[in-house]
Amino acid sequence: MLDLRIPSGLFFFIAGLVLVIVGVTQFPHAPMTEANVDLYTGLVMVGFGAILLLLAKRGRPA
């Protein structure tokens, strides 16, 4: 059976990475916030994705 942690982890890792790159290189602004929200959210997503992938790699039965 497919281990769901692998595709979920990959999705968030890739999407997060894209956000981090956009945040660092372009720093797009939303009208009502000064923060680099793409960068921060991207980092959270990369972290979350990485945790899922690590858990799957350790092969702990879920």
């Binding site: 956000l19 797009p28 939303a30 929200v37 793409d38």
Partner: peptide, 12 residues
């Protein structure tokens, strides 16, 4: 979302 999400996060 239109006010707080820049392109990128808007996609998410």
């Amino acid at each position: 979302m239109a006010q707080f999400y820049p392109s990128g996060l808007l996609g998410v």
